[in-house]
Design a protein around this nucleic acid. Structure first.
Lengths: 342, 342
DNA sequence: CTGTTAGCGCCTTCAG
DNA sequence: CTGAAGGCGCTAACAG
C-alpha cells in the first residue's frame, strides 16, 4: 500500500492524494473526503522516510540523557517523569522521538551532531546530562536547536530549562522559619552542578532576608546520596550549637540526616526538623514522611518542548530567541518531617 | 555533504563510495581506505531516511511503555533501568531507537501497527505495559516482531521476557525459613498481573516444599502500593496466630508492612521479619533497610533485545522461534529487615 | 481544482 | 574492481 496504489484506487493522481492527506487548501472538500475515507479503509500510512527525504524535515527530535551515572541515582527519580512529560508534549505537537546514544569513550565528539544530520533531526532535548559530556558540548556548540533540562551547556541555539531551585530552597527555609526555627543548617549537593549551587544560593538568600545567622559550620557539602546526608547530619548534630532544622538539597541526603538524628537519639520532627528537595518516591515512604520541595516534571518537560518549538518556529537564521533560562516553579510538600520548634 | 559530493572529491562514483562505506567486498582496500578517510575528514554521514527508503529497512526498532499508570508507580522504578538497558543493548547492535506513543482514547487500534509501517520499524520492544492496551494487542496480533518485558500479550511473532518471579519468591521464603521462621505470610499484588500471580505461586510452592502451613488468612491481597501493604500488615498482626515473617510481592507494600509493625509496637526484624520484591531505591533508604528480591534490569533489557534479534535474524517467514518466555534470574539482597526468629 | 514532472540521497542491479 | 542507470515513496513546482 503506497500512495500510487491509493491514487489508482481513488481515481486521482498521487499529487492529489498527497495534497488531500496533507491538508493543502487546493483540494475540493469532496475529493479530500473520499481519499481520506479510502486511506483509512485501506490502512494506508505514508512512508515517513520518503517524506523526510523530499521535505527535508523529519518532524523528529532527538532525546539525550545521562548515560553514565544514571544508575547512581543523582537525578534518577526524575528522569522517567521528565521522559514521559517530554514524550507526551512532543507527541501532542506531532513530533516523533528518537533516542540518541553515544557508544562510549572512543566516540568522536561529533557523535550527536552526526546523528542529528543522519536522521534529519530538527532539534534535541537533553535531560539532566553531565556538564562534561564532550559529545553534548559539541552538539550545543553546533547550530542544532537544543533544549536542556538541568543541563549546563550553552551554545548558539540553546535554551536551558530548570526548576526554580533558588525559590524552592527559599520556600523551604521560610517554612522552617514559620515553624519557629532560627538555627537552620543546610546540606548541599556538589556545587559545580547548577541545581546544587542554586539551592544553596536560595538558602543563603532566605537566611539573609530573615536575619538568620549562617555560621560556616551550618553549610555542609554532600553528594546527593544517602551516606553524605547521614555524615552531614552527624556533623551538624555534634556542633556546640546544633541546628534545630536542616534543609538538604536532595531527598536522599535529607533521609540520611533523619537517620543521623535517630542514631543520636533525637526524634524527627520533635527534636530536629528536616526538609528535602525533589520529592522522590522514597520521600513518601520513610517515616516520618519527608517534607520536601517537589519539582514539576510535567511542566519541565512541557517547557523544554515549548522552548524547542519556539526556536524551530523562529527559523534557522533568526537570532537566539531566548538566551535566558526558562524557570519552572516548585511546590513545597509538607509532610511529617518538619514540625514546630520544640 | 552528500554521497555525490564525497564521490566527486574522492574521484570515484557514488556507487563505489556506497560500497566502500557499507563494507562490501568488491572494493579495493586502497580506495576503501581513501574514501573512509575523506568521509571522516569531511564529516560525511549518510542520510538514513534515504537509506531506509531504498533498502526498505531502517535498522530502527520502536519502544513502547505504559503511558497511563506510570505515574502511579507500579513498575515505575524499573522502567528507567530497563529503558537504559534496552537502549544500550540496542545501540551496541547498531539499531536506532524510536519512542512510540498513542495519543489516547480515540486512537484507532492500529496506531502502533501504523507507526511501525510509517517508519519502517523492524520490531518493537514493550516495557511493563498494561494487559488491556488495545493498540498493543493489535500490534502483538500483527506480524511485527515484538519482545515484551513484563507484558501479557501473545501473538504470532511475540516473545515475552520476564524475571523468574516464582523462583525469586521461593528464595525469599527459603531465606525466612533458614532464619527460623515457620509462620510466614504474604501480601500479593493484583493477581491478574502475571508477576503478581507468579510471585504468589512461588510463595506457595516454597511453603509446600518446606512443609509450612498456609492458612487462608496468611495470604492478603494488595495493589503494590504503600497503603495496601500497611493495611495487610495490620490485618496479619491482628490474627490470633500472627506470622513472624511477611513476604510482600512489592517493596512499597513491604515498607507498608514495616509501618504497620512499628504502629503495633513491634520491632523489625526482631519481632517481625519483612522481605520485599524489586529492590527499588527506597528499599535501601528506609530503616531498617529492606531485604528484597532484586530484578536484573540489565539482563532483562539484554534478553529482550536478544529475543528480538533472534526473530529478526530468523526472517519474516520462519516459524515462531521461541514461544516460551525468556526467564531472567533474580537475586536476593539481604538487608536489615530480615533477622532470625526471635 | 487537478495532473505531470522532476527530483530528495542512497543502494543495487547490470555492464564494462 | 568500478561506473552508469534506475528507482525506493513521496512532495513541490509548474502547467493546465
Amino acid at each position: 500500500m503506497n500512495i500510487r496504489e491509493l491514487a489508482r484506487r481513488s481515481g486521482v493522481s498521487t499529487a492529489t492524494v498527497s495534497r488531500a492527506l496533507n491538508d493543502r487548501a487546493e483540494v475540493s472538500e469532496e475529493t479530500r473526503a473520499r481519499i481520506r475515507r479510502l486511506a483509512v479503509e485501506l490502512g494506508y500510512a505514508p512512508n515517513e522516510p520518503a517524506r523526510t527525504l523530499v521535505r527535508r524535515r523529519s518532524d523528529t527530535i532527538g532525546l539525550v540523557w545521562d548515560s553514565g551515572q544514571e544508575a547512581a541515582g543523582l537525578h534518577n527519580p526524575f528522569l522517567l517523569g521528565l521522559l514521559s512529560a517530554v514524550r507526551t508534549a512532543l507527541s501532542e505537537a506531532d513530533y516523533h522521538l528518537m533516542l540518541l546514544t553515544t557508544a562510549g569513550e572512543d566516540e568522536p565528539d561529533a557523535a550527536y551532531v552526526q546523528a542529528v544530520r543522519r536522521h534529519n533531526l530538527e532539534g534535541v532535548i537533553a535531560l539532566t546530562t553531565p556538564p562534561d559530556d564532550r559529545c553534548l558540548r559539541a552538539l550545543a556548540a553546533s547550530t542544532v536547536p537544543c533544549a536542556g533540562i538541568d543541563t549546563a551547556f550553552t551554545g548558539p541555539r540553546t535554551v536551558r530549562v530548570s526548576s526554580d531551585n533558588a525559590a524552592g530552597a527559599e520556600a523551604a527555609v521560610q517554612h522552617l522559619y514559620d515553624l519557629g526555627h532560627r538555627r537552620i543548617a543546610t546540606v548541599t549537593g556538589p556545587l559545580h552542578l547548577p541545581p546544587a549551587a542554586e539551592r544553596l544560593a536560595g538558602y543563603r538568600r532566605a537566611c539573609v532576608r530573615l536575619g538568620l545567622a549562617v555560621p560556616d559550620s551550618y553549610v555542609v557539602g554532600g553528594d546527593f546520596f544517602l551516606a553524605s546526608g547521614e555524615a552531614a547530619g552527624r556533623r551538624l548534630l555534634a556542633l556546640d550549637e546544633p541546628p534545630t532544622a536542616i534543609f538538604a538539597a536532595g531527598d536522599q541526603m535529607a533521609i540520611g540526616a533523619m537517620h543521623a538524628a535517630a542514631d543520636a537519639g533525637l526524634s524527627v520532627p520533635r527534636d530536629l526538623a528536616v526538609v528535602g528537595f525533589d520529592d522522590v518516591d522514597a520521600a513518601g515512604l520513610v517515616r516520618p514522611a519527608l517534607t520536601t520541595v517537589a519539582q514539576d516534571q510535567r511542566a519541565l518537560g512541557a517547557a523544554a518542548v515549548a522552548a524547542l518549538r519556539d526556536m524551530l518556529d523562529a527559523g534557522p537564521s533568526s537570532p537566539v530567541p531566548a538566551a535566558e533560562p526558562r524557570i519552572v516553579p516548585t511546590r513545597l510538600v509538607v509532610r511529617g518531617s518538619s514540625g514546630p520548634r520544640r
